[in-house]
Amino acid sequence: MWLINSSIGRKLVMSVSGLGLILFLTFHMAMNAVALFSGEGYNMVCEFLGANWYALVATVGLAALVVIHIVYAFILQIQNRRARGSERYAVTAKPKGVEWASQNMLVLGIIVILGLALHLVHFWSKMQLTEIVGGHEALVYQGLAIAPTNGAALIAINFSNPLTVAIYVIWLAAIWFHLSHGFWSALHTIGWNGKNWIKRLEVISNVYTTIIVIGFIAVPLLFLAQSLIDSNFVLEYVKNTL
């Protein structure tokens, strides 16, 4: 099977799974953006994407993409280390024109996974997972039971903690670096590139990645800022969502 046996095949798998994940991030970011404007609207989205069959199918698909992407990343890494030989260079210098991210994709990827784990604990386990196992409340906040579909409340509660927000910022920065290389690289791997396109793709990739990451980062920052300005903000906000 050439997707396993050939180097370009393996890279194609990385590329396509990566592009799929970028597509997911785009949807996710668009969804989050709703929370910036209306908690109610955001919760409608959460309800829509709860433990319904289509959302579950999509989740399984998504999980598969993540697993494939990670497994292939490790396979490639091991093969590449082996190809490098047993001796390392004593002196190395980064040549001009080489992005830092491109040479550190695995490290960035690991940071992304760790962030993802935390993110799943913060949100997904409280929401979709809780629904799946038949639970009716995500958590209890100051005596108020929060429903698993009440994403807006979870956002407000989680992002009132400055430490959590700081971790999210680092996580998203890693995603930015990972994508700034990964996006054009994925397109390059499927063969979309040429003398003129190489610059264009890099610009497109940087702009797109920046938009996505800003979209994500805006939510925690906004909610943290509001909770810092007004100490009652979270409680008020949560009450409004009930």
């Binding site: 180097s7 093969q79 040549p95 001009k96 491109s102 994709m105 290389h181 791997t189």
Partner: peptide, 13 residues
């Protein structure tokens, strides 16, 4: 036994 390309562009540079 050559490795898999990850488009770092070091070769080109």
């Amino acid at each position: 036994g050559f490795g898999n390309c990850t488009n770092t562009r070091a070769c080109e540079a």
